[in-house]
Simulated assay, not measured.
Amino acid sequence: MLALAAGAFGIGTTEFVSMGLLNLIASDFSIGEDAAGRIISAYALGVVVGAPLITAVTGMIPRRRLLIILMFAFTVGNGLSMLGENYHLLLAARFIAGLPHGAYFSVAGLAAASLAPEGQRGRAVAFVGMGLSVATVIGVPAAQALGEWLGWQAAYALVAAIGTGTFVALWRLMPHMTRMPATRPTTELGALARPQVWLTLAIGTVGFGGMFAVYTYITWTMTEHAGMRPDLMWVVLAAYGIGMVLGNVVGGRMADRNLEIGIAASLVAIAIALVAFSVTSSEPWLGTLNFGIIGFCGSTLVPALQIRLMDVAGRAQTLAAALNHSALNAANASGAAIGGAVIAHGFGYSAPALAGAGLAVAALGIWVPTYLLRRQALRRRRGLF
């Protein structure tokens, strides 16, 4: 479990550190905020493409071996990011680095759930996800500080080192998971025929977009809009990370207690936190606190969506769990694009938060019929027996 969480730690570090270093990358390549935001979108699109593709064609590979292969690919992708000499090479490297992301979380989450006692699947999935949350407290600020000191390339070098350590840990500590059945591509693709899978993915894709509309441009927001010193940005990122750690724990328990209501509560909380940030983002420390609350609210949603996809996907759980990360990274790409467009049109650095709140409300509108349809289907099924 610790080895699995270490992989999540590395992935969380590389996913979020780019956002804190965008101003340095933009300065190096002489590009604006909108173009810099495409670096985030490139990684996210790698996840969106890689998660279903890799998962669908690797169902026959033993889970331990697949996790080790994915971590090797992750390490190579971040090594290439370190070597990106121009904007377009860096875009390609970030896309490659994102490819194993979703498949890793999918297989690691399913492995954790299969190892967990009955009734504690949500907490087991949250434990693996805790690696990502802890990354935002420790890994991201450390990589951010290293990037500020030695150049943004050093941050990706640190991630590659974390990936190497995780590769060794998985090799030595990961059990062979012989009880996890192999699946064929046709079985995994069966998830795509289930409406509840698509509806759950839609909730994640729309609802999580607001988080990244804010996070992608947080350095500019806090330094240009709130007037915070650039060397204190690690405090802002750590606040978000602490919120994610706490939210991940609460989200796992919410998923075990009441899955559907937990999803709705998370979406409402995200909307409220983002509206508040549109006001508090002009104040350095109040905005930092609010940013931490955004991290808390957003991370409560992830375990619930993961468990819900496992429940509605039938035998195609590996692909369904991977698609959850495709959905969240589609939200990453779209959120970065929406936030960049709002800023580019002159609405200011507080406006992406309001756009994000609108996305959370829209996701709540998707949740209502999704919940009602599933409840109706369960009632019909009980009536047959």
Rank of each mutant, 00 (worst) to 15 (best):
D256A: 03
I272Y: 05
W367E: 06
G295H: 09
G339R: 10
I261T: 06
F296D: 04
F296A: 06
A316K: 00
G346T: 08
G346W: 07
Y349Q: 09
L359I: 06
I272M: 08
N329E: 04
P303K: 12
A337N: 06
S299G: 03
S278P: 00
S334E: 05
Q306S: 15
A313F: 00
R315V: 01
V302N: 15
N332D: 09
A337H: 08
V312G: 05
A264D: 06
A327M: 06
G295Q: 10
G295S: 10
V368W: 14
S326Q: 08
A336K: 10
L354T: 15
G335D: 08
I270P: 01
N324H: 13
L359K: 04
A344W: 06
A322N: 04
P303W: 11
I366G: 07
A344S: 14
G339A: 13
A271C: 12
A341L: 15
N258K: 05
G298N: 15
I307F: 04
L328I: 14
A320D: 01
G262L: 03
L267R: 13
H345F: 06
T318I: 02
D256T: 02
A351F: 04
A360F: 07
G292Q: 04
S278M: 02
V275S: 12
S266V: 05
G314S: 04
D311R: 15
V302E: 13
G346L: 13
A316W: 00
L267G: 04
L323F: 07
I261K: 03
Q306V: 09
V268I: 15
A271P: 09
S281G: 14
A344R: 11
L301V: 10
F347Y: 15
R257W: 01
M310I: 11
A320P: 01
I272R: 05
V312P: 04
T300H: 10
G335L: 09
G339M: 11
G348S: 10
L354G: 11
R257P: 00
G340F: 07
A316T: 00
F296I: 11
A360P: 02
A264K: 10
I270D: 01
I366D: 07
I338A: 13
T300Q: 07
W285K: 10
A316L: 00
V361F: 14
L267A: 07
G356P: 12
S266P: 02
G314W: 00
A360S: 14
A273C: 10
G292Y: 02
L259Y: 04
G292D: 09
P284V: 01
H325V: 07
I307H: 03
V268L: 14
F291T: 03
Q306F: 10
V268Q: 09
A360G: 10
A322D: 03
G358E: 13
A313G: 07
S282T: 14
I294M: 09
L328E: 02
S278D: 02
S278N: 03
F347M: 14
Q317C: 03
W285L: 12
S278R: 01
V312S: 09
H325Y: 08
M310S: 06
P284C: 05
G346D: 12
A331E: 11
S326R: 05
S299A: 12
Y349A: 11
Q306R: 12
A362P: 00
A273H: 03
P352I: 11
T288G: 05
L301Y: 10
L259Q: 07
C297T: 15
I272C: 03
F291M: 11
A363Q: 06
A321R: 05
A313W: 00
A321C: 13
P352A: 13
W367K: 04
H325W: 04
T318F: 02
